[in-house]
């Protein structure tokens, strides 16, 4: 008697949770079309080479809380045409997070970056970070999350199959090792991605990085417009940033914008 009720409750919980999951997924994937007219108006303005007006329209859409890769891309283009390289790269970076496999975006991003004044060679991160970063570079954060999720399901189901199907037993360990390694890599990459997500910023105006978070501090190095930095900490409107070559200094937060 007791066991039957237990299994019934268990199945109910399962169904409930599954429905919750799909509901959330549906909500998540839902297309919102309110405010789409801003986008088309902005495209028209861009065609008329009225880039400042176009930017206003695009940004109005963002203020409504709606974003898309194409929107960021078009904003990047508008800023680029206006001559604002820092902002252009900022928006290309934002677009890249949503559409890492877009060819137009890649080419524009590469071109914009080639226009950055100071050429600084990048300090290579640790090999492990580098490889995992490269491995999943072409996946968006959501795709990566789903990838990890499916690996997790695969691990659970291979354990269960190993328990109940005798012929699966010899392969279970092998499968578990493979899925496990992939899962670890995926989780690591996702972690790194989330870290970068909040730390990375783009210099929007040419700035000087100082040794101390004060205006009177000695200048340590120069940050050109469009450069990518990662924010370590911040204090009184100053951010401690690390340049791609590894140099660290303080810069006024008004010169940079988080991606």
């Amino acid at each position: 008697m007791k066991r039957k009720t237990f299994s019934k409750i268990f199945i109910l919980v399962l169904i409930f949770a599954a429905s919750l999951f799909f509901q959330s997924l549906i909500c998540f994937c839902e297309n919102t079309n309110s405010g789409i007219e801003n986008f088309y108006r902005a495209n028209f303005l861009y065609e008329q080479t009225q880039y400042t007006e176009a930017i206003k329209q695009y940004e109005a859409l963002i203020e409504k809380g709606l974003v898309s890769a194409n929107l960021y891309y078009n904003l990047g283009n508008s800023y680029f045409k206006k001559g604002d390289l820092g902002k252009a790269i900022l928006y290309y970076e934002r677009a890249k997070r949503l559409a890492p496999r877009d060819i137009d975006l890649e080419s524009n991003y590469a071109y914009a970056r080639s226009l950055i004044k100071a050429k600084i060679t990048e300090q290579r991160p640790l090999w492990f970070v580098h490889i995992t970063g490269k491995l999943f570079a072409k996946l968006t954060m959501d795709e990566l999350t789903l990838f990890i999720f499916f690996l997790y399901i695969a691990i659970v189901s291979s354990i269960i199959l190993g328990l109940y199907l005798k012929f699966m037993k010899p392969y279970t360990r092998f499968l578990l090792i493979i899925f496990g390694i992939m899962l670890i890599l995926g989780v690591f990459a996702l972690g790194a991605r989330i870290c970068c997500h909040y730390a990375d910023a783009i210099i929007v105006k040419e700035a000087e990085a100082k040794f101390e978070p004060f205006e009177r501090g000695t200048t340590h190095f120069v940050l050109s417009e469009g450069m990518k930095v990662s924010i370590r900490s911040s204090k009184d409107g100053w951010a401690k940033v690390k340049r791609i070559d590894g140099k660290i200094g303080w810069v006024n937060q008004s010169f940079l914008e988080r991606i």
Binding site: C27, N31, I36, D142, T145
Partner: peptide, 23 residues
């Protein structure tokens, strides 16, 4: 640079990521 995109693509809430989704 390459020309702008004609359609807005899939619009979503800013900052909405799957890994943050409670469901």
């Amino acid at each position: 640079i390459a020309y702008i995109k004609e359609s807005a693509g899939k619009l979503k809430r800013k900052g909405a990521y799957l890994y943050k989704n409670k469901g």
